[in-house]
Design a protein around this nucleic acid. Structure first.
Lengths: 221, 221, 221, 221
DNA sequence: AATGAATGAGAATTCATTCAT
DNA sequence: TATGAATGAATTCTCATTCAT
């Protein structure tokens, strides 16, 4: 709402100019990193500014408050990844099983590895203090995402690939552990406690596979 | 040392005494509720005290600092539920499938409904600021819990009920969505955003069922 | 003003009774020790109570406030020693030189070694926060003491033993280092810094001797 | 790192800059005054700030804590005066008697009249709560000062001007009343109690004179 | 635009004093 | 009397935000 620099055509000016155009996004990167790591309340605006390489005062030239920064951080990171997922789903072809395996494994692997995974933890930690985050998340992420996966499952049921199941529940069985994986990466997984270690990519693959087996109408080899 | 203990008649003592005995746990309840709702940094000690029905100063009669309260909140709530789970597992009999279905559904349903579910969100949100929470959680919850579930899966594999699978991954497929359910209940789920709604008990049952089907060595009806 | 137990004839009751009678003075001892060591503001009433072997509440049965305790501590300790000094001076005989040497050396040696020495430091540290201490000290200690010493010097001048000097100044030359010795004992001297070490008794003797030589009307051997 | 330092013309800079340079010393002045008057524990940081003409928060831009302020107050004020004394001593010539009279009278008169005199009271009052003050004082003030005076006395003994005396004791006879004079100026002397009144300069002169007479090897006129 | 000194409301913690037992 | 749990005013220190330069 505050910063509206879509830095689309790269202003191509002097390095000073280019610098200016990138500031908002550098600040957002810094803010995301620290909000995810420490939480909103425990993050100091001065630390965000320092991490972005500017001074405390400069932050306020681009964002009106710390809370404004939080809103922007969440809507920016989220919208791009969701749009991306929708586009890929639309383009895909083949059986429901194959579609789900490819799409889900790819999208979640990439999400987990990108900064976007931190947003999951941030939302979990902060929604109750900032209700508008909940609305944003539900409308732009949770509902579209559920619908997308739900429609793929329904397609499999209709084609006879899958048993008739409660689509809603299965969506959760699929998605919740992957969301938790993202959350975990930025909480316990970021500590040096061993224990829960495991290759995330392997797990994503194995998990999708396990669920698809659970869904299958006919026994699998 | 000086006066002879005058609580002669009943160890229950006066209401004054009784109060003192209950305060720590009342404070812990209040602290858990607020820490889970707002996060550690955004919770004011005065609010904890007020919620527990005492004054600011009284809190410090029982806990040395806000951080001390955080530590206690986590270790207290956690230890009881884990001990409980271990005990039940030891007592159970029957096939691995049946054991897992009963035990997991019961334990997680109860956990989700109790205050203890909030601890999951709290740990997720605060580990990175308080590393000792990570150690505590890993040692007392994550490792024992994983081992317990892992041993049940292994038992099923050994008996031929289950396919040979990567036990570690399956443990995560089982547990992560249930953990996420707890986390969700205290984040987005506590907001009035609709969307993700669903009967948790139904989901727990359906999820365990889905996984057990995915594990089954022989096709299920 | 608050406690008026002159414990003169020792009530001779039970040990419980005797205890009660001694409380005020035990509290005063504890208060003096801690006030001298840490200063008034940095001393906690609870520490005073503990050191006196009673509970926080008991203290308030004998003294109305922490400040009340301060007043009592000072007037009690001081009055006795001053009265003692006056009495001895009155009883003494002989030359001014001999009188001064004996009296000053004895009185200051005893004062330095008793708890009373702490009162000097306490007064120095706290007068500006509690003006009534200043009045008390001036009236009951500084003026009587100066007068006593001044009259001894005057006696020596009148008899031709001493040069004619500014009596006022000499009183200070005599007294200030001895006061400072008391103050020092409870400040730097109580730390384990070496340096200023020296046998106080030797110094007292040497100092009085030095001054008497400075005063002498005729050269000394 | 980013901007090229724009204070090109004169390092004096704007009034904004000039202010920043003076703040630390203004804060130190305010802190010294209040610590000496009320003692460390009874001084409020907000009062220090107000006396220095800044807000509460500004104080913490320059000093990390109230205790830090105490340390700085002591080391700053002390080091300059001691260095000054050493320099003068080195420059002086003439008989030991003359040297001591001139140097001691001057240095102590100036010290008594400057803010530095307050440091004596402050150290006396606070050493036991802050042991590092003791070390600082011993190393930087007490030992160098004693040595300086001791060497002057020894010079007089060697030259036959003074009787052979215990140098250590005489140093104390000289210094303790002067230290006490400083202490007194900021304790009882600052109250409106009369009594101990006397022109400090006269006393300093008379005291040094008295001691020098006490030291003299040959009778004085 | 950028800086960083200054502000002051706000939060954690302490401690003298009270009072029910 | 004696106790010690409870209180809440007071104090230190922090940090989001402003603004002169």
């Amino acid at each position: 709402m505050t910063a509206t620099t879509p830095d689309a055509p790269t202003p191509a000016g002097s390095s000073h100019q280019r610098r200016k155009a990138e500031r908002p996004s550098e600040l957002l990167d810094a803010a995301l990193q620290l909000f995810v790591e420490k939480g909103f309340a425990a993050t100091k605006t001065e630390d965000i500014a320092r991490l972005a390489g500017v001074s405390k005062g400069t932050l306020y030239l681009y964002y009106t408050s710390k809370e404004d920064l939080l809103r922007e951080v969440i809507s920016q990171r989220v919208s791009t990844r969701i749009a991306d997922g929708m586009a890929r789903a639309a383009a895909h072809e083949g059986s429901a099983t194959e579609l789900m395996r490819t799409l889900l494994v790819d999208w979640w692997t990439q999400t987990l590895e990108s900064d976007a995974s931190g947003v999951f933890k941030l939302v979990v930690s902060e929604v109750r203090n900032f209700p508008e985050i909940g609305a944003l998340w539900t409308d732009e992420v949770a509902l579209p995402g559920s619908q997308l996966i739900g429609s793929m499952i329904q397609r499999g049921i209709d084609s006879g690939e899958f048993r008739p199941v409660d689509v809603h529940c299965v969506v959760h069985s699929i998605v919740l552990p992957l969301v938790m994986l993202c959350v975990h990466r930025h909480s316990l997984g970021a500590c040096d406690c061993p224990g829960m270690s495991m290759e995330p990519q392997d797990f994503i693959r194995a998990h999708i596979d396990l669920v698809l087996r659970g869904l299958a109408a006919h026994p699998q080899p």
